[in-house]
Computed example of a mutant assay.
Amino acid sequence: MFSFDPAREGKLYLFGESDRILAREQLLDDVPRTISGFGDAVTVGEFYQQVYSRTPSHSDDLRSAIFESPDVEILTETGGTRRKAGTIKEDDILRISRQRSFFSTKWGS
C-alpha cells in the first residue's frame, strides 16, 4: 500500500469492500517494514508524515494496522503501552517489538 503514487495513479482512489480488506492486510506488512526503515523507533507524527503521501488508505485503517501489528509497540511519553487504537497520539513512539512474529522474517532483520 505504501507504493501508491498519486501523480501516476490519480488523486482519487476509491476502495470497494474487497479492495479495502486487501489493503488492510497489506498495511500489516507495510507498517513494521516502514518503521524499521527509521531504525529502532519513530514518533507517530514522523511516521504519518512519511506515509500519508504514499498510501491511499484511510487514516482509520492505518491507525488500526499500527495497533494490530504483532511486530509494533506503541509507547507513550512515559514509557507505557497504548491499549486502544483510538488513543494513539502523534508524540507516541512506534517501535519494532523485541519479540518479532514469524511473519516479520519476510521484510528483514
Rank of each mutant, 00 (worst) to 15 (best):
M1L: 12
F2N: 06
F2E: 05
S3D: 14
F4V: 05
A7P: 00
R8N: 11
R8P: 00
E9L: 10
E9R: 09
G10N: 07
K11Y: 14
L12A: 13
L12I: 14
Y13I: 09
L14G: 09
F15W: 14
E17Q: 13
S18E: 15
D19V: 02
D19M: 12
R20S: 08
I21V: 15
A23M: 14
R24K: 15
E25P: 00
Q26G: 09
D29V: 12
V31A: 09
P32H: 08
P32M: 10
P32Q: 10
R33D: 15
T34V: 13
S36N: 14
S36A: 15
G37L: 06
G37V: 02
G37K: 08
F38H: 05
F38Y: 13
G39Y: 07
A41T: 04
T43M: 12
V44K: 07
V44F: 15
V44L: 11
V44G: 06
F47R: 01
F47Y: 15
Y48R: 13
Y48C: 04
Q49E: 13
S53C: 04
R54I: 00
T55E: 08
T55Q: 05
S57L: 03
H58Y: 10
S59T: 01
L62F: 07
L62N: 02
S64W: 09
A65N: 01
A65V: 01
F67P: 00
E68V: 00
S69Y: 01
D71I: 00
V72Y: 02
E73K: 08
I74T: 04
I74E: 02
T76Y: 02
T76N: 07
T76R: 10
E77M: 07
T78G: 08
T78F: 06
T78A: 15
G79F: 03
G80A: 13
T81A: 08
R83W: 08
A85H: 04
A85Y: 02
G86C: 06
I88W: 04
K89E: 14
D91S: 10
I93C: 06
I93W: 13
I93V: 12
R95K: 15
I96P: 01
I96E: 03
S97T: 11
S97F: 03
R98M: 11
Q99L: 12
R100D: 01
S101A: 13
S101I: 00
F103P: 00
F103I: 08
F103V: 05
S104M: 11
S104Q: 10
S109G: 13
